[in-house]
């Protein structure tokens, strides 16, 4: 956690992902307060508007809610929503590239399945 930011993609997306990780691994449980936009901006030395954009999207997605004058809090359903979302991202970011690479190497579905169940062994082993 608290990975440093890079410019490989929009900064607000990275802020969003880091907050999501914090929620998924229970560092901040449901009902608890998350850092404010200002705290995030100070910590990462980023533009506050960028931090706010990431946080506001989490509010729109039902992962955080605002308590006026108090701060941002993790919603009851946050983890459930995030798991669903991450599962879709997992398919897109890992499963599809895995299949593409497998095809490049002429690995058919049968062999791919075997490789997946064999756990961490290369062919030489």
């Amino acid at each position: 956690m608290y990975r440093s930011l890079d410019e490989s993609k929009p900064i607000y997306e990275q802020i969003k992902e880091q907050m999501e990780d914090i929620i998924i691994n229970d560092s901040i449980p449901k009902g608890d307060r998350v850092p404010s936009t200002n705290e995030i901006a100070n910590f990462y030395k980023i533009n506050p508007a960028t931090a706010a954009k990431g946080i506001n999207q989490l509010v729109d997605e039902g992962i955080l809610y605002k308590k006026r004058g108090v701060g941002m809090f993790v919603t009851e359903d946050a983890k459930g929503i995030l798991f669903q979302k991450r599962k879709n991202a997992f398919i897109k970011n890992f499963v599809i590239p895995l299949k593409t690479e497998a095809k490049k190497l002429n690995i058919d579905s049968q062999e791919l399945l075997e490789l997946l169940t064999k756990e961490g062994k290369t062919i030489e082993d």
């Binding site: 901006a41 100070n42 030395k45 980023i46 533009n47 506050p48």
Partner: peptide
């Protein structure tokens, strides 16, 4: 320089 950026963000907020 790093301290300058920190102060800049704080002051800007």
């Amino acid at each position: 320089r790093s301290r300058f950026y920190e102060i800049l963000v704080e002051q800007y907020q």
